[in-house]
């Protein structure tokens, strides 16, 4: 593949990834405000979150200041994201596989970040010991990431295929997702083993992307890995694997959304409450002609008529 094709392919994939991801994120953000549906424990409840308590435990809570912790939700999410606390607690038998897979992803993401740093260090002609140090860490991340990721993916594939608790829920996309992820990790491991100084070659590749140097050459194992990874990145935002985005909303906008109604909310609510409704059961009979307000405040005589 020539240099210019690499540039077009790589930046094209990243562009599409960002566009689709942004579109899907905005689609979630733009959904209307919903009724409250919080679920304990809510970690931002200062002094109470640890046992699942909330501000509603205070006598005449509306007259009391609310103390919210910023740190506690971050610690909760860090445990959830990095250690997969929920799976450990509720499905320990699955944890080794899913933890390996996720840790593999985090390490590879970390390695990619470091490779961008390394490319900048190369461009800036930084002292060699700094670059060596950064390349060393990236190398550890890469090796750990490819190993853990491969083990996790293979383990999950086997577990999902053989475990009667999981197998009935598999679809073709379950396998496609795991196979593609596995291909990224395994091709990475293969490149690490067979492309000479893998980390240096990869940082040179990054450098050429950043500097728009079209004269880059990439070894076959590294090419195979980069193409596989880019295809996965292209596929990722089309799937439910973007739960890393959705999870923010399921926690912050639903489970932990215990905010009482305020003026800003009221404006939006008033608009929603006056929308036409078309549910057609006998006790509603809205047919697009009545609004939520009409229905909820209808006099009893109307109900008797229906």
């Amino acid at each position: 593949m020539s240099g210019i094709v690499w540039h077009i392919f790589t930046f094209g994939v990243i562009g599409i990834f960002l566009i689709v991801l942004t579109y899907r994120t905005l689609a979630i953000i733009r959904l209307p405000i919903h009724l409250r549906w919080e679920l304990a424990p809510i970690p931002h409840e200062k002094g109470k979150g640890r046992y699942g308590g909330s501000y509603l435990e205070d006598y005449e809570w509306w007259n009391k200041p609310q103390h919210r912790s910023l740190i506690a939700p971050m610690i909760y999410m860090a445990k959830e994201i990095l250690l997969l606390r929920g799976v450990w607690k509720h499905y320990t038998a699955l944890w080794p596989f899913t933890f390996s897979l996720h840790m593999g992803i985090y390490l590879i993401a970390g390695m990619l970040f470091l490779q961008v740093v390394n490319a900048v260090l190369l461009i800036a002609q930084s002292p060699l010991y700094v670059l060596d140090f950064s390349l060393g860490i990236a190398s550890v991340f890469a090796l750990g990431g490819y190993l853990l990721g491969s083990l996790g993916t293979i383990g999950l594939l086997l577990k999902r295929s053989l475990d009667p608790n999981l197998r009935p829920f598999n679809t073709i996309s379950t396998y496609v997702n795991l196979l593609l992820l596995g291909a990224v990790f395994i091709s990475g491991g293969y490149a690490w083993l067979h492309s000479g100084d893998f980390i240096s070659n990869m940082s040179l590749f990054m450098k050429s992307l950043i500097t728009f140097d079209t004269g880059l050459t990439v070894t076959f194992p590294l090419s195979l890995h980069i193409v596989t990874a880019l295809l996965f990145i292209l596929y990722l935002p089309l799937t439910d694997m973007i739960h890393f985005i959705a999870k923010f909303f399921t926690y912050h906008s639903i489970r932990w959304d215990d905010k009482p109604q305020d003026e800003k909310m009221e404006q939006e609510l008033n608009a929603l409450l006056t929308q036409p409704v078309s549910w057609s059961a006998p006790h509603v009979k809205a047919y697009g002609k009545k609004s939520w307000v009409d229905i909820a405040t209808a006099e009893m005589r109307d109900e008797k008529k229906s």
Partner: peptide
């Protein structure tokens, strides 16, 4: 028709990882 629970419903429908946890 369902602004009341649309966001929680869609997120729960679209992002289950089928982990059976």
């Amino acid at each position: 028709n369902n602004w009341t629970f649309l966001q929680p419903l869609l997120l729960s429908l679209d992002y289950c990882a089928q982990c059976q946890t």
